[in-house]
């Protein structure tokens, strides 16, 4: 089995929101970026995978094993960072080590203290007095210290300054040096994903609207820029979505190289994930 995560027909319904029929395959050894606007369903998907909330229908396999049947065994190999802070604020990092060594069979306190030292975390200071960034670093250190094979990270870099973010992303890349290891990472800071993600999954209003490799995305997708007059001449079949501004139109296109030949007088830029998100959510068709 080469997939770290396999999800089939996953649904979860709330009174005002529905995660609809999600199908996913995440191969081992890659980093997958989960993107989407606030309330799109990213956290609901992550919480369903972790069984924090109970799915309505569908099946989940992790490392090729049925999640329902082997949940506890599987969880020994998953490291988690949730979107909200989750450590008791009155405790210290030293206390966290003292607790976690009885939670995970493979807890490695030397590794934990190495991360604390790398991140310059004081193990005797109570967590309440940590900055937001320090709390996040402690959460990341904890998620990595039982030698997980899969990291599920919900907004792990939010609240971190660019220097520490870089440091954290390097740690994630190091984690992937072992080709068996996998990361599922949800974030709003899409520039992080542009540098490290192998695959992008885009969720909008509870639907998976894009599931694409990073190379395919950046090779094929693009932004075609033109004025309002030129826009009228563009074939509708070439347009995925567009956004009209006061003086120009930005058009999301696929097949960038082919269209560059077709519309030689127009400028086609490479896409950024931020532009992709904005155009796919807010753009017209």
């Amino acid at each position: 089995m080469n997939n770290a995560i396999e999800i089939k027909d996953l649904t979860k319904t709330y009174s005002n929101f529905e995660l609809k029929n999600i199908n996913l395959e995440i191969p081992r050894g890659i980093i997958v970026g989960l993107i989407g606007e606030n309330g799109a369903g990213k956290t609901t998907l992550i919480k369903s995978i972790l069984n924090i909330i109970h799915k309505d229908t569908g099946s989940i396999k992790i490392f090729g094993k049925d999640y329902q049947q082997y949940e506890n065994e599987i969880k020994e190999d998953i490291g988690v960072v949730l979107d909200d802070e989750f450590f008791p604020e009155l405790l210290t990092a030293k206390d966290i080590n003292y607790i976690m060594k009885d939670i995970y069979k493979n807890w490695d306190q030397l590794l934990f203290y190495k991360y604390l030292s790398d991140f310059k975390i004081d193990d005797k200071k109570i967590i309440k007095n940590f900055s937001k960034g320090m709390k996040k670093k402690l959460e990341i250190a904890t998620s990595l210290s039982h030698h997980p094979k899969l990291l599920i990270l919900d907004e792990p870099t939010s609240g971190l300054d660019p220097v520490v973010r870089e440091e954290v992303l390097d740690i994630f890349m190091n984690f992937l040096q072992d080709e068996e290891n996998t990361i599922l990472l949800s974030t709003h800071i899409t520039s992080d994903l542009e540098n490290i993600a192998d695959k992008i999954i885009f969720i909008d209003k509870g639907n998976k609207i894009l599931d694409i490799s990073r190379d395919e995305l950046f090779d094929n997708y693009g932004i075609l820029k033109c004025d309002l007059e030129k826009f009228k001449t563009i074939n509708k079949e070439d347009i995925i979505t567009y956004k009209k501004n006061k003086y120009d139109v930005r058009i999301l296109i696929n097949n960038r190289k082919k269209l560059a030949k077709k519309y030689q007088d127009l400028l086609i830029d490479k896409i950024t994930l931020e532009e992709l998100m904005v155009l796919m959510i807010k753009g017209g068709k």
């Binding site: 924090i52 969880k75 020994e76 949730l82 989750f86 450590f87 008791p88 939670i103 995970y104």
Partner: peptide, 21 residues
């Protein structure tokens, strides 16, 4: 209250046998 306020209750569900333990 601490567990709910600090979201430890949710986090503990991600551990092996988390809810039972």
């Amino acid at each position: 209250s601490y567990d709910d306020y600090n979201k430890w209750t949710i986090y503990s569900a991600t551990f092996p046998n988390g809810r039972k333990n």
